[in-house]
Design a binder for these strands. Structure first.
Lengths: 344, 344
DNA sequence: CTGTTAGCGCATTCAA
DNA sequence: TTGAATGCGCTAACAG
């Protein structure tokens, strides 16, 4: 329905090339002609055909957000919508479009095959100029593939490879602050519910926990460390394993897990924060809505997403530069009621 | 880097057309040749170039999810991630890709201009084969435009137009059940915090409220109706306006607003559910995590998204049929603690 | 069953 | 400053 370059050219009495130049803001067009062409473009509602343009330029102005595999279960965590909003806003600002690639939560087998297919189609099929990868396990096969195929990409979260660009939040410092706060309140048996330990955010938050204890010369008791998966259910399960070891405080690596932990503590007849103090991580909206409001570590989720896009765009538009971009955004402790206030 | 049809053809000793036929599963290829071609495809890792294919077929296998304008503020509500998951899964299943179009929350002016631009680029530029529109106000200009441009689209939520296909949940029945439950418990002053009244879900849930009262012959007291915007803050504000009119029960049109209402009730020294009963809508994960756990109306969010894609795909792949698809999925009352249990 | 031919709509040399 | 020619990689008639 919308006209083609050809038709616009005819109507304006010029050649296709000239219209193309006008559309693409080339300087070398006589102002008078430029005006005439614009007029026709406006009148006809001409819009360049994306596929035709991509075929000629070999660029699509589409970037992908890839969230691999099983992690999709986490998608009920408000972390993702907030991240996506940051990404979408930045895309809008730079006139890129966003393609979302999630993976079904079906049997792992099928899921793996689908992931391969999708990778093939979307990336080798040149749907995308580049991608942002979020929440991938460190050993996810996507990283080697992206590197090998030379696809421009930015990781949300660390990845140890010299050619891997990433933007991350300071998980270690955040976790350390949280645990130090508990220690300062007089707790001596501080447990932690970690994230998945195959993800860097899981590892780093555990590292922060260890560092805080080490700084006080407190030996790490492995019984006080339980691995979770960032979900509420995972938090509940981990808390149940922790319960027999009688912690007086718990640092959970996500707010969702903290909420799960609180539920289990309550069921066990323990009060929060009087009997057990709890600290979370993320500062999602839920954190201030539960009873008691959650002390937690705030991370700039939206900015993280925005920054990832900024980096990716700069990668795409300055193909020459070989610079590697590593950005780490700060985290911040938000003190509410769930950790108690007074020294014990 | 990946080879083209041409190169594959050369390597397999056949013509481009034959390779194309093999790739597209055409039946008329000698099995032996087919095998030989597949072999080359596998070895070379050939992948059709998406743009080239789109240019030739005039289809992209990409569908868009559009969430217009200011509604983006709602994006912290877990409703969206769940909807998106349903949509993404269904896309995967049908081998479509998903493009996400949100709009920045900046000044309305800019936002409007951006929305126009995006519409032009993405839809008239033929990036998309069709779109799913969610959470648009009923008077959103996108609907007339889509209809006029003949873009295949499915709305999540009702829209009163004979050529508009939609999938919706039974908001009226859900709201009616919720309010009837409160009436059954003996409440006589049941207030409601509505959603935005320019959205059909907002209107329909209010209609359910009215119907429940009418069925009992209770006159509607407009003072007991406060408009919200589905967010927690909106819920708080609405509850503050309701407070002076001393409701004994509140039906909030979203769980987020219910949580906000509870917070305000608490601050006013009222107990939930003893002094004021509260019922929400959505049954998001938060609902079972707050204190007291929320009685609410469950809607099949994920299925809604999946169904929207199913309808859209069937629209895209059976272009002949002029059928209009209207699907309404059932809602269900989930009784927890926030409405109290005993008759008063 | 297979190859040849002709575009799909645009960007981009190269001449003029 | 402008136009003509060429090709991006693929599909889809049409012959054979």
């Amino acid at each position: 329905m919308p006209p083609t370059l050809e038709e616009v050219a005819k109507l304006a009495g010029v050649s296709r090339s000239t219209v193309s130049r006008v559309v693409n803001q080339h300087p070398n067009v006589r102002p008078e002609v430029r005006e005439r062409v614009w007029e026709v473009i406006r009148k006809t509602g001409y819009q360049p055909h994306a596929a035709a343009r991509s075929l000629a330029t070999r660029r699509t102005r589409v970037i992908g957000l890839i969230i691999p595999q099983a992690v999709t279960t986490l998608f009920t965590d408000p972390y993702f919508p907030i991240l996506i909003r940051g990404i979408a806003d930045a895309c809008n600002a730079h006139n890129y479009h966003l393609m979302l690639s999630l993976f079904s939560r079906r049997r792992v087998q099928e899921s793996r095959a689908r992931q391969d297919l999708l990778y093939q189609q979307v990336l080798r099929g040149r749907y995308l100029d580049g991608v942002v990868v979020s929440s991938a396990p460190l050993d996810d096969p996507i990283f080697p593939r992206l590197l090998e195929d030379g696809v421009p990409f930015i990781i949300v979260g660390r990845y140890p490879h010299e050619r891997a660009n990433y933007v991350d939040v300071d998980n270690v410092a955040g976790a350390r602050m949280a645990v130090e706060h508990l220690l300062r309140l007089g707790h001596e048996r501080v447990a932690t519910i970690t994230g998945p330990l195959n993800m860097c955010s899981g590892q780093d938050r555990l590292e922060g926990y260890r560092q805080a204890l080490a700084a006080r010369g407190i030996p790490v008791d492995e019984d006080l460390i339980a691995e979770g998966d960032f979900t509420e259910q995972g938090g509940q399960a981990a808390m149940r394993r922790l319960l027999p070891h009688r912690p007086t405080a718990v640092f959970a690596a996500s707010d969702m897990m903290a909420a799960g932990a609180i539920k289990v503590l309550r069921e066990a007849g323990l009060r929060v924060p009087e009997d057990v103090a709890v600290v979370g991580f993320d500062d999602i909206p839920l954190a201030s809505m539960v009873e008691p409001p959650l002390t937690t570590v705030r991370q700039p989720i939206e900015q993280t997403g925005g920054m990832a896009v900024e980096l990716l765009v700069s990668l795409l538009e300055n193909p020459g530069e070989e610079t590697v971009h590593w950005v780490v955004l700060p985290t911040e402790l938000v003190i509410r009621a769930s950790c108690g206030g007074r020294s014990r």
